[in-house]
Amino acid sequence: MILGSSVSEVAQLSLASLSGIRGRRMVLYRNGEEQQPLMGWGSVSAAESSGGSSCVPIPTEGSVKPVSSIDSSVIVLGEVDDGFVMAGKVTVSSRREGKKYAYVFGPSIFYIGESNVAKVNELLSNRLPERFIIHDAAVATRVVRVIMERAAALDVAINMSGGILALDGSLRVSNFEPSRCSLVRIAETCERNGVVLMGVTKNTKLRPLQRLEGKLYKSTRPSFMEVSDVVRSIAPTVLGRSVLARLSSDGVPLRIDILTEEGLEGSLSSLVASDILCHGYPDTLKAAHILSIFSLGEEESAKGRLVRTEGTNVVQSFNVRRALLGKMQLGGRGGN
């Protein structure tokens, strides 16, 4: 027998760990996707131990303002011997005086490789090791996404007055902030123009916040609780104040970072009054998301453009995993 005492120890550890989950509430992941329990995690006592203030109802009579939401997406189209080719889209979805507007920029194609990584790096506030960008597709994608999204956000902030600008995701200062249109500059511009800047996170990854969601479910009215302290303790670079908010009585709790001078209650009630909410999620953000994601047709268009007009030379390729492991799929995941 090849396997011996070392493996036995691991087996013991596994068995012993299982005794700890007896009687606990559990959600099972579906196809690797994270799930949330229907009425949030844990008991009220558990939530209180996680920190956070008490629930505050969101006033129903908020002032109606123009709302603009921004979302973006970037996909990797292909790889060249010294970098990556990506396509990106950013969408601004707005609601003003009851009318809907949408502005789509892209698809735009970006190449980041050895020949231009220095230039890309020059755009960023914090210079990054160049290899870090051109050797990792995820980093390159992130860089392009932040550059595109921040550019669009700054343009909207400059041209907006007294409205709400909602970004998809948190207001955390990224490692890839572009120097010309960084999140800080966007925040300053919003402040100058009387615009409330919000970062709306659908599914917070911060466990202590997940524990607090149960409290919001117990409230029958749209309400929020401030969680700035919890967020700061984990992510110190987040701008503004943070809340967990349930914007409608049938909604799910969202983490919202808010940069405002008019107070949390006023800002949230304005958002509720100004935008349509679908399960507690702003419709403009949903529209921005739908318009920014790449359909297969758009991906093919972008690839077609690359091949037809950019003088690229497409070489034969193969999938290493498929070549080594074969086509057989057992419906499983993982095992990278």
């Binding site: 979805s93 009318k99 809907k100 507007y101 949408a102 502005y103 789509v104 920029f105 892209g106 698809p107 529209a287 739908i290 318009l291 359909s295 297969l296 047709g297 758009e298 991906e299 093919e300």
Partner: peptide
């Protein structure tokens, strides 16, 4: 071709909005 239906659905969803494209 793959994704066409999603594209068309999306076009139709936003046919009521004023949609501007910078392409």
């Amino acid at each position: 071709s793959p994704g066409i239906q999603e594209d068309l659905l999306r076009d139709e969803l936003f046919s009521g909005s004023e949609l501007n494209r910078l392409d």
